[in-house]
Nucleic acid binder design. Structure first.
Lengths: 119, 119
DNA sequence: ATTACTGTATTATCTCAGTAATACAGTGCT
DNA sequence: AGCACTGTATTACTGAGATAATACAGTAAT
């Protein structure tokens, strides 16, 4: 799994658990990159994506800040419930003899069709 | 979408619709490649994958043949039903405010976890 | 045995996502 | 203004998957 995606998850998780709160400033690119022993551009990409998702806000020269509409603890609950739904759905599909590859293709097709955009 | 995957789909579809029947020989690599204006190796890859999935059987020097346990018209029906299930599931998830990217990640995580292998 | 067809194997090329290196530009404090 | 910090943009490197070029090996008919 790409580094920048892992970082995005960690940030989201930190927000969901309250370790990072709306309005609060995130660690800036270079220090964080150095701490994680990765390239600043990789952090930048993660931040850019998070900003595009509305989770954080980037202000050039100032820093990166958690948005008001960032994922809350409630959202984490929702996601957990969704995870159960997905697990059940996949179990049913498998029970009907649908292979994993076919499941992947069906999901992808459905997402791309009905108003789908790969952010 | 990779050419060899598209070709795999076409072959499966041909089998499901009865255009190609169990035991019947598929067009051989080079003629088919020439007709589709693609490289024979690409056809070979598609055939190899299909053989790995048990859909067809490859006999060196002889040709490629549809297997007995290839996908039937019934399987096509099943897949259609599965498609409906997936569509419903995704609709529900979206209704709960889950984004498409999150759906993708949930599905992938679930598949990889519970006995998942990316054939 | 030869011939003309099959699929197979090996190696090289192309493409693209992810990452890295480096220079650019905005903020805010003194 | 100057400085030390922010994020941004451009360009290059790298690795993996897809495709291509070419040579190899098995089959079946004559």
């Amino acid at each position: 799994m790409p580094i920048y995606l892992q970082l995005m998850e960690q940030v989201k998780h930190a927000i969901e658990t309250g370790a990072l709160r709306p309005g609060e400033q995130l660690p800036s690119l270079r220090p964080l990159a150095e701490e994680l022993v990765i390239n600043p551009n990789t952090v930048a990409k993660a931040y850019r994506e998070l900003a595009h998702q509305g989770v954080i806000e980037l202000r050039q020269g100032a820093g990166a800040f958690v948005t008001d509409k960032a994922p809350t603890q409630d959202d984490a609950e929702k996601l957990k419930a969704a995870k159960v739904l997905v697990a059940q759905g996949i179990k049913r599909l498998r029970g009907r003899g649908i292979t994993d590859d076919e499941i992947r293709r069906l999901v992808e097709a459905e997402l791309n069709q009905s108003g789908g955009q790969k952010s």
